[in-house]
């Protein structure tokens, strides 16, 4: 997955959940990504978050700890 697609998709998810207020948004956005993103896609996101998550919505940045890290051997 291209960086720009990942950013667009993650930020779209955040934009939706932000409607429910900041606390819930972090939890729900992480759950959504864990549920629907395959390990390769999560790997791109996690790698970017590890570098500070520039360009990502604050909700996604805060959700970093809740996003399931893909097993490296599997990715």
């Amino acid at each position: 997955m291209q960086q720009q697609d990942m950013l667009r998709m993650a930020n779209q998810i955040a934009a939706f959940f932000n409607g429910s207020g900041p606390e819930l948004a972090v939890k729900e956005a992480a759950e959504h990504i864990n549920k629907f993103w395959d390990p390769h896609m999560r790997a791109v996101l996690v790698a970017h978050l590890d570098k500070g998550g520039e360009g990502l919505d604050g909700t996604i940045v805060k959700a970093a700890a809740l996003i399931k890290r893909p097993k490296t051997a599997d990715a």
Partner: peptide, 18 residues
């Protein structure tokens, strides 16, 4: 136990070579 790729994600992954 991990979700797989959705159709648009498959296309993206193909272009990247994975």
């Amino acid at each position: 136990a991990e979700p797989g790729l959705r159709i648009p994600n498959m296309f993206d992954a193909a272009i990247e070579g994975s």
